[in-house]
Each structure stands twice: as structure tokens, then as C-alpha cells.
């Protein structure tokens, strides 16, 4: 899974590279175009295009019938029943390609979330760093945190024993990849904290976790894996949420991708000869 993630992340990194210093809307537009095209291709080759075409024709015909015989209540009701039935059929024919689309779509969206969901800390911005221990390992009071020069640890440790959790508040001082070092008996873990003023950077709130978590690995492409014998279950850095600004409105990236990929899909369906 880790290698798979590495390949996919590498691809996304490559695509995003030219856009890293530009407004994120550009790269999101490109990904929306790619998603739109991928969805069209999948739809074309996994759906029964002929049946979809026929079904849509039928629906159009019954709508025409509705307008022709709007004074004939019997015909109107029958046409409405037929429109409803053919709509159900259309959904049935669209279901299979939808299922095929889901897998690549989820993988793409997970990647995009790691680029556009959160952003690095800015200088002078603070965040909570949480470390969770595995059951039966060290005690929380054994753990200390040291920060490199670009980070300040602002608070003493806040320990929550019944959750095996220990938290600190850190504050970024300088841009760059800053170091945190967690020390505990027999183990030292280094954790990178990304501090950046602008530009697209892949960050994950779940920064490090033990290798066993498949779901965590899948959902957090930027996740760093801890050694198998580590007593630490996970390390989280509470990076701030990122929002994209369009015309002074703050919009979630998913909304932009959703809208633009639909727009691109419909715009290009003729070019790809796809009946949607």
C-alpha cells in the first residue's frame, strides 16, 4: 500500500509541480479536466451506450407526448408513469459505470485532499501536536519533545492518560521543514513539520502512524510510517484547513472539483462521443 501511495503521490507531485507557486484554482481546474475526461472514458467503455441512448430517446418521446396531449388526463398519467419507469432504467444503466468510476475517483480525491485539504503552518502560527501511544507501552510521563530552531514548543505536555495521548502546542518561527524530536526510553522519533507561507504543499494531519493501519495509509498519502516495533501508535499535527478563494468567497476544493469536472464532462462528451 505504501509503495502504491508513493507511485500515485509521485504522479500527482509531477502534475502539480508547474502549478505549485500559482493560485491553486489552476491546478484544481486541470485535475477537474483530467477527472472529467477519465470519467467520460470509463463511462463510455463500461456502460451500454446503445441502451442509454434508447432510454433517453424514450424519455424525450414521452415528454413530447406530455406536451402534445396535456388535456388528455389518461395519456398524461400514462406518459408520466413511463417517464418515471425509463428514468429508473436510466439509473440502472448508469449504475455500473458509476461503480467503475468510484475506485479511481476515490483515489484521486484522497490525493487531492492531501494537497488541498490542509495547508502548512505559516510563521508565527500555532498548532497542536498529538502523540498517541500503543497500549501497554511507555508511560506518558516518559515522553519529551524537543524542537529544532524553526519551531517553539509553547506549552508543557498535556497528558490524557485514559486515551494514551500527550499533546503540546507548537509555534512556527521560520519557513522550511522543521524538526520535532520525540524522546522516550529506547526510542527517538523525528517528525517533520512543514512551515510555508505560500505554494502548494502536500500535508497530512496524521503525520506518522504504525504500519498496521491500512485505512490510515490509504486515506493519508503523506503519512510517514513508524517502525513496526515503535511504541507510538500515531503522531498528529493539527495543520490548518485550507480554503480556496474565488471572487472573495472561500470555497472548499471539493466543491470546485465537483462543479468543474461536471462542466468539463458535459463540455467534452461530444468530443469523446459519450452518451451520458
Amino acid at each position: 500500500m505504501q509503495n502504491f501511495n508513493r507511485v500515485i503521490s509521485g504522479f500527482f507531485n509531477l502534475v502539480i509541480s508547474p502549478f505549485k507557486t500559482m493560485d491553486p484554482i489552476w491546478s484544481l481546474a486541470l485535475f477537474s479536466l483530467i477527472i472529467g475526461i477519465i470519467m467520460l472514458i470509463i463511462f463510455r467503455y463500461t456502460s451500454d451506450q446503445q441502451k442509454i441512448r434508447e432510454t433517453k430517446s424514450k424519455i424525450r418521446a414521452y415528454i413530447f407526448e406530455l406536451s402534445l396531449f396535456k388535456d388528455e388526463i389518461g395519456i398524461v398519467l400514462s406518459a408520466q408513469k413511463n417517464i418515471f419507469n425509463y428514468n429508473l432504467k436510466y439509473i440502472k444503466y448508469a449504475l455500473k459505470p458509476m461503480l467503475f468510476m468510484m475506485i479511481p475517483l476515490v483515489l484521486i480525491l484522497i490525493q487531492l485532499e492531501s494537497w488541498y485539504g490542509h495547508r502548512p503552518l505559516k510563521p508565527d502560527e500555532s498548532a497542536i501536536v498529538s502523540l498517541k501511544l500503543r497500549e501497554g507501552g511507555h508511560t506518558l510521563s516518559d515522553i519529551t519533545l524537543k524542537a529544532g530552531e524553526g519551531i517553539i514548543v509553547e506549552t508543557p505536555p498535556l497528558r490524557i492518560p485514559d486515551q494514551n495521548e500527550i499533546d503540546w502546542r507548537i509555534r512556527a518561527r521560520e519557513t522550511g521543514d522543521q524538526d520535532l524530536t520525540f524522546n522516550m526510553p529506547g526510542e527517538e522519533i523525528r517528525q517533520k513539520v512543514i512551515v510555508s507561507e505560500k505554494g502548494l504543499v502536500q500535508v497530512s494531519r496524521l503525520a506518522s502512524a504504525s504500519a498496521s493501519g491500512f485505512t490510515d495509509t490509504l486515506l493519508n498519502p503523506a503519512l510517514r510510517h513508524l517502525p513496526g516495533d515503535s511504541q507510538v501508535e500515531q503522531i498528529k499535527i493539527n495543520y490548518p484547513a485550507k480554503s480556496i478563494e474565488i471572487y472573495k468567497w472561500h470555497v472548499h476544493w471539493l466543491v470546485i472539483v465537483f462543479v468543474l469536472s461536471i462542466v468539463f464532462g458535459f463540455a467534452l462528451k461530444g468530443l469523446f462521443r459519450v452518451e451520458i
Partner: peptide
Amino acid sequence: QSSKFGLRSAILFSVYIAVMLVSAGCGQN
């Protein structure tokens, strides 16, 4: 003919989207 129309509308649409994006991306305070 339909295909040509599709291509033309796709290009127009792309230009429209690009203009929108430029406006959004260049939005200043």
C-alpha cells in the same frame, strides 16, 4: 456535424472556463 458542434462547444466552454479562472485567480482585494 454533431461531433464538430461538440468540439466547437468544448472549445468555447474551455475558453469560458479559462476566463472565469483567470478572473478568479487574479481576484485582488
